[in-house]
Design a protein around this nucleic acid. Structure first.
Lengths: 228, 228
DNA sequence: TCCAATAATACTGCATCCATAATTATGAAT
DNA sequence: ATTCATAATTATGGATGCAGTATTATTGGA
């Protein structure tokens, strides 16, 4: 741990990152008010860098600043998900397209080695590791695409999606389904067919949204059943 | 009088907007250092809201904050444009698609009335008014699409694009070409063919990039000729 | 008992101040 | 004259303080 390097990153960035993690972990669930001075005291800092961090999170869409009324963790609706996922599907599809175009033989090999992890963890039903490998795969594809702005836009939307508590992989049978979709993506890459890779990735994302929608429908059903 | 006192919006937002305008107008060209205290004095405010505004602009990509080294207007490269435009083309295409799906008869009529302005101003060769009408058209389409997140992402990228000094409409013959593309878009809407509208809008954006690339090539040629 | 009006409290937003790091200027030595 | 070291200046980043406003509590009246 080099303290000099730590000192080089601004405090507001550190704070922003800590807040992101707490929001993603739903330690600060959507809708909760963010108490500036309580947090400042908790982190042992002044309100100035904290407020700067909140401005950043606000323009990322993670929190909503209401003038003179404070800061709240953004609440995401089903409609928001319906709006975001088709866009994400396009963007991730495009990423796969560009990645496929730029990929060399050893890049494909690297992708396949990550894909094999998916196969292994799906076989053993290890949802957690499958999730990790899945993230790693998408990250590798983004790296290959090597498009700063495409990446930026996707990251922003992904952050917003992380506001939802449920993961599509928790859906019944989603693990195997996801694996099947990944096989199609991988096949596109191996065939050096950028269009196919794009389409497969696109459909993969939309399928993820479908799984999520079903889960939310079940959740809603349970809640109303409980309420009744 | 002081508009900040009247407006409900926070001071940092007003400052952010003023800075955006100055950056877009190239009064603050890419690469220039932003002198915090000079600006604060100029605006008659303290550095605190100014710094908050800069954090916002930074996460929009308009400025780049270098830790302990200050704030600089982001410089945009030809490569950045090559990366951004295909993404913008997809996103604006998708916007047209969703707009076409949701549009009612009178929405189409409204679009056509704006389109007619394009026809008129193209006929009289009024580049400025054509530009305005063009913006109005795209804005109207976005409004019809009614997709908050899609809109957000497009706005962010558009801000970055505005960092470039040159407008594609200034290219030789681009006005008529742009009009022709708009006719195709309008035809897609009138035919209630969302896919056609999407494709036409997509191609329209890519054509804009082509025009820009040619202009930049000429600019570069002039510069090197001057330098030689 | 409930509602309204007003007082008390608390929080947001902006300004000012201070410490530290970076840059520039100055001077000495080779 | 050029380069390196050191001192002076300047700008950034963070802390603190204060005014104004929104929220809540309290008290009086119906």
């Amino acid at each position: 741990m080099n303290p000099a390097r730590i000192a080089q990153t601004a405090l507001y960035q550190e704070v922003a990152e800590r807040l992101r993690q707490r929001i993603f972990a739903h330690e600060l669930p959507p809708g909760t008010w963010i108490d500036e001075q309580a947090l400042a005291i908790d982190y042992g800092i002044s309100r100035t860098p904290l407020r700067e961090a909140l401005k950043v999170l606000a323009s990322e869409g993670l929190v909503t600043l209401k003038p003179r009324r404070g800061c709240y963790v953004t609440e995401i609706s089903e409609r928001d998900l319906d709006e975001i996922f088709p866009v994400m599907a396009m963007l991730e599809g495009r990423t796969a397209f560009e990645a496929s175009q730029k990929a060399k033989a050893d890049d494909i090999a690297r992708l396949e080695s990550i894909h094999n992890l998916l196969e292994v963890h799906a076989a053993s039903g290890d949802k957690e590791r499958f999730f990790e490998a899945n993230q790693e795969f998408h990250r590798a594809v983004q790296e290959l695409a090597d498009n700063r702005w495409l990446q930026q836009v996707i990251q922003d939307l992904r952050k917003v999606l992380k506001l939802t508590r449920l993961h599509s992989l928790s859906a019944e049978g989603r693990l195997q389904q996801s694996l099947a979709e990944h096989r199609l993506i991988m096949a596109g890459f191996k065939a050096r067919d950028a269009k196919r890779a794009e389409q497969a990735m696109h459909d993969h994302l939309l399928a993820g949204r479908e799984a999520l929608a079903k889960m939310h429908a079940r959740e809603a059903g349970k809640s109303s059943a409980k309420a009744a």
